[in-house]
């Protein structure tokens, strides 16, 4: 870990109403400013629940998260302004153009006028939307929707970016370009990125540190190389299966 911790997770738990088990079970760890942290786990491991708590969508049952010394449970609204979220589902208005969707998201963060338009246009150009930014999102391919979805998360230059499986459904070129963009933005702005994925290879190359989570608990955490060395595994997938088992999850 390099730099100062910007996210401090303390004994964080979440039990959904009507459920008998903890979806997130007393998680405690820290994430440094500018770090790319990958959270890997099988379905139902608690990844999305953790991201949902971090983005203020659901409240923890117990524990606390401190982000830049602000408590998430009490300072949710101001913290939302410095967090960008790229949800797993496409969260766009299908009948609006990609540009209009981004203008809306930007305005919701208080951006306006020329600054907003320039930012939106720059991102659209950067992601190859020169010709079709004014077409309705419903006419886009899955990969194009994902790119607009991603721009929506970074438009307001957040300090922390939460990515929930951002490259699902993208073709190889788009995926490579997206990861390149995320690396670039992380390097240039020191944006902290928390990322979940089922793509082990991508996680291996993209993340500074990885936490493997299952049944709401972190099983292992460390740099990709460090984890492989400590568990004597040839790749991340082997390590993942070793830690979480081969049983199919729902």
């Amino acid at each position: 870990m390099e730099g100062k911790a910007c996210i401090k997770v303390r004994e964080l738990s979440k039990q959904y109403k009507g459920s008998n088990y903890l979806a997130v079970n007393k998680l405690s760890f820290e994430i440094s400013e500018g770090e790319i942290f990958g959270l890997l786990g099988p379905n139902g491991a608690g990844k999305s629940t953790f991201l949902s708590m971090l983005s203020g969508l659901i409240k923890p049952t117990s524990g606390e998260v401190e982000i830049f010394d602000h408590k998430l449970t009490t300072d949710t609204e101001p913290l939302k302004k410095i967090i960008g979220v790229v949800p797993q589902d496409i969260a766009l208005y299908p009948t609006l153009t990609g540009r209009d969707n981004l203008l809306f998201i930007g305005r919701m963060y208080g951006l306006d006028g020329k600054e907003l338009k320039d930012r939106v246009d720059n991102y659209l150009t950067r992601f190859g939307f020169d010709k079709n930014s004014k077409n309705a999102v419903k006419t886009y391919s899955g990969g194009m929707k994902r790119r607009i979805n991603l721009i929506g998360g970074v438009l307001h230059n957040p300090k922390i970016l939460l990515l929930d499986e951002p490259t699902v459904g993208m073709d190889v070129q788009t995926r490579a370009s997206t990861m390149e963009f995320l690396n670039e933005i992380n390097e240039t702005t020191r944006m902290t990125i928390i990322y979940t994925s089922h793509d082990m290879e991508q996680a291996n190359t993209f993340c500074d540190r990885i936490g493997i989570i299952d049944r709401g608990q972190i099983l292992k955490m460390g740099t990709p190389d460090g984890l492989l060395a400590s568990e004597d595994c040839k790749d991340l997938e082997a390590l993942f299966l070793k830690l979480t088992g081969r049983k199919i999850r729902d």
Binding site: L57, K81, I83, P87, A91, Y93, I105, M108, G110, G152
Partner: peptide, 12 residues
């Protein structure tokens, strides 16, 4: 439609 998930992550 998932739109509201993003909406709810926005301030307000």
């Amino acid at each position: 439609e998932g739109l509201f998930i993003r909406m709810r992550t926005l301030p307000g």
